[in-house]
Design a protein around this nucleic acid. Sequence first.
DNA 1: TCTCGCTATTGGAACGATCCAAAGCGGCAC
DNA 2: GTGCCGCTTTGGATCGTTCCAATAGCGAGA
Lengths: 350, 350
Amino acid sequence: MPSQTPVGRKVTLNDIAAGCGVSRATVSLVLRGSSLVNKLTRARVEEELRRQGYVYNRAAANLRRRTSTSIALVLNDLANPFFAEFAAGVDETLAAAGFVTLLGCTGESPTREQAVLGSLLEHGPAGIILSPAERSKAHDVLAVVGRRVPLLLFNRELGGALPEFAHWDQLMLDNQHGARLATEHLIARGHRHIAFFGGHHDSSSCRQRHAGYVEAMHTAGLRTEPYWRIECAPTRLDAAHHAPALFAGALAPTAAVCYNDAVALGLMLGLNQRGLRPGHDFALTGFDDIAEAALGMPPLTTLSVAPHERGQQAAQLVLQRLQQPQAASHQTVAPVQLIVRESSCPPPTA
Amino acid sequence: MPSQTPVGRKVTLNDIAAGCGVSRATVSLVLRGSSLVNKLTRARVEEELRRQGYVYNRAAANLRRRTSTSIALVLNDLANPFFAEFAAGVDETLAAAGFVTLLGCTGESPTREQAVLGSLLEHGPAGIILSPAERSKAHDVLAVVGRRVPLLLFNRELGGALPEFAHWDQLMLDNQHGARLATEHLIARGHRHIAFFGGHHDSSSCRQRHAGYVEAMHTAGLRTEPYWRIECAPTRLDAAHHAPALFAGALAPTAAVCYNDAVALGLMLGLNQRGLRPGHDFALTGFDDIAEAALGMPPLTTLSVAPHERGQQAAQLVLQRLQQPQAASHQTVAPVQLIVRESSCPPPTA
DNA sequence: TCTCGCTATTGGAACGATCCAAAGCGGCAC
DNA sequence: GTGCCGCTTTGGATCGTTCCAATAGCGAGA
């Protein structure tokens, strides 16, 4: 509407106070909905606020009150749909609680992670949600973050764990259990020779998923050949590239538990190029249940981790921590759910 | 009133000053790397800063200097990989320039857009990058944002355009040209009966793409039948649903230019259900080049819009605007690139 | 001796909000 | 007239930083 704000200077409490003949303090009370203010006065002030197009300066208020209304969200890779959905969930919940999200991306670089954390901290967030870069060290994070601001670790553990950082909360996925579910499912379908495909060994989530796979295999009395463990970058392209490695060993697997969906979808491509039809001649499973999983050819059996809900959960955990700064730190493991689709066929000979 | 959280006592300039026997002002000069400070003094102060674990309070500085070091990024849908990559590009460039990203998601709701913009504005961003929700009105955005903070519109135009908002910068995709390229490509492949499939007519990007399609058809001397224009929601599911409509008219098309990749992938499903093989019996193109496009069956011919680069560009445009607040507003149209894959086959009879 | 210039340093007033103790005011009881 | 009570309102200090004008010290030139 016809806002009469003079260009070049912000409208402050003083302007409003002067504009309707009350004190700054009264205007402040009105803004905060205090019941001390007389109805008539309030109406006059509110009219003036509207007339001058006042916008609240939360930075100034936070300075005086020594409070903060922002939370930093630091992600290793926002371009990954998994983290994007996570971020959307975080922002949604934070916004509902009146907080604002300070975003930072590290691109899997511990160096940039340091810089990003440092820069965000200067803006005084009340808390931090961090999905660490791959080789990020607990010691370095502690050095820049300090103990003052509560931190929630998401998705990955930090390298070189320090005893002192037990005060950090954690929200992790149940990687081991999930991979175990997938493996058991393949075994139940009749597979005996099952590979573990993709991911890097120095990623904690990959190690956990691999452990779940081994656990299921051994529980079922099945062997795991070393050459059934194929490492590659967690991308489609690299996965497609490494497909032939599956069949280089003495005993070819009939199925593969893949590190994640990206890897599984890449492997499908690689199999096609070898003339193998995934879901018919070879079974595979993924992890994450990204949007593309349901649409693959064939649709991919995978583990749903509900990234949006995880984002909401992460935000809630941080908000909870803010209310009880002294409570013992909390380790949360989010459940994962097996989604059976067509990629996990029985073995061709069965 | 949003809940606010107390933060523990912080180390301030006063603490440092007291700690090494200089004045607050001197410490401030050291922090800002002023050349006025004596080398010895600087060393002493820096040592003390480290010793006490000082963190700069940018909010206080910004208050005093009447500056801002944050930019608000308001997106209609962060869960969409296109916007996620865009956001990553924005954050990357902003961070490099020393700015911090204030994130806000609107979920395609103009109401939430209002709320989110209002909340972010209270934190005093230096500028705003906005990808509007679908039915967002220029009038409403202007009412909450005002003229004080520069705004960059990305990707979509606002409804009910006001003359006054000519001062907003814009970064749009070259929708019309892109759709024209796709259509020309299909024509060059030998198609004569080409449909335009998907999207809503009240979306500016859909209108533009349709215009590009019409332009190419008419330039080539080809007719466009009204029943070759099929509207549906820009989702896979709705697209699959509307596939039969393509063949309901007197003259069946042999190809379709789709509103975007999601729609194209959905149409593929719908065609398959009719026993038509996309890429063999029917040609189609998409728009966006999302990750799944390359992995479709068949891989999808589409238009690449490079969302990450667009994010960098958007950030640069805003930063530029901050340096020249009075410069005339700028409308940028980002180029798109045709990516030819297997979905755009020649017509079966050709 | 006085002034000048140069280098370092500093106290105090901002920035825009909130907090707090104090006060104005009308009515009512004594 | 005085004291006391609620109901509103208010001035001034304060949060952590930066800006500004003022200074102190000190060697050099007149």
